[in-house]
């Protein structure tokens, strides 16, 4: 076997390998949706973020409009500080409400944005004024039990 046959076979091999890598990046991993560098970051503060994770989707009306970039705790107010990176082609008004929601009963948690009517748009580094924390099942149950316990003696007499 002479050299050109080797070259051809190796070239074919590398081409198939690169094709497989492209398949993994585009078809399996969806490289197109991964652009954390672009867009602008806005900050939202929550009392409790529940099980929200970095890179969780940010959705508005069910459409993914960004990703959670980082999560931290404010050392003074003890609020969770969540940085949201919004894709550059979406704009939201100043009075947008951010809430932490769950997709399905057991699904992943995401940040839902609901735009308000303010004509001024949010820019890079702005902070969202109105937020709604994650629903914590234990708190809900204890609230329910307390309210049940409060109303039982009233009925007794």
């Amino acid at each position: 076997m002479n050299r050109s046959r080797f070259d051809f076979a190796v070239g074919l091999f590398v081409a198939i390998g690169l094709l497989a890598m492209a398949f993994m990046a585009l078809k399996v991993g969806n490289l197109a949706g991964f652009d954390s560098g672009s867009g602008y970051a806005i900050e939202a503060r929550f009392d409790n973020i529940g099980g929200l994770k970095v890179r969780a989707p940010v959705k508005s009306a069910g459409v993914v409009v960004g990703r959670v970039e980082s999560i931290g705790l404010d050392a003074e107010t003890y609020e969770a500080r969540v940085l949201l990176r919004i894709y550059p082609n979406y704009r939201f008004s100043k009075d947008t409400i951010a809430s932490i929601l769950t997709s399905g009963l057991l699904g992943e948690q995401y940040v839902g944005l609901e735009s308000g009517g303010d004509p001024v748009y949010l820019g890079a580094g702005d902070r969202l004024g109105k937020t709604q924390s994650a629903m914590i099942l234990e708190k809900l149950i204890s609230q329910f039990l307390f309210s049940k316990a409060a109303e039982t003696p009233a009925k007794a007499p």
Partner: peptide, 14 residues
């Protein structure tokens, strides 16, 4: 060769 072969393996598996 290994990264190409691994990529081909994964692609074939998917």
């Amino acid at each position: 060769s290994m990264p190409f072969l691994a990529a081909i393996f994964s692609t074939a598996g998917v």
